[in-house]
Amino acid sequence: MKTIIFKTASTYLLPLLVLFSVFILLRGHYLPGGGFVGGLIASIAFVIHSFANGLEQTKSLIKFHPGFLMPIGLCIALLSGAAPLLVGQSFMTGLWFEDPLPVIGMVGSALFFDTGVYLVVIGVTLTIIFTISETL
């Protein structure tokens, strides 16, 4: 699989796809998309990169084990759910900032929740695929 064309393409594809996945994540609340799809697309990006350049390269690119994304993502999701408790509302009530931010749009606890999902999905997928391709 390590042809030069594929290799070169994947180098450019990786940032593009990751960027696209973030875009999908952010627009998820208004248009098709969201944390699950976003996370899956980002994982596919990394998997393609690892196919083209070898697993070691991809790993050194990410710098840390993707498994760490799982607890981080879970914590973000849980905290965004627990945040309303601080202002005296019940668990998982949606909180929103008054004004929309540029580019991202309206920011609320649901967005953080979706980000948590996004990170968990990346962590899970990459952990599974990397572990398998390492040991087999």
Binding site: F36, L40, V121, V124, T125, I128, I132
Partner: peptide, 13 residues
């Protein structure tokens, strides 16, 4: 279904 699809991936792997 969306959740089912994602879960089934975990199950399959």
């Amino acid at each position: 279904i969306l959740t089912a699809i994602v879960i089934s991936f975990g199950l399959q792997s």
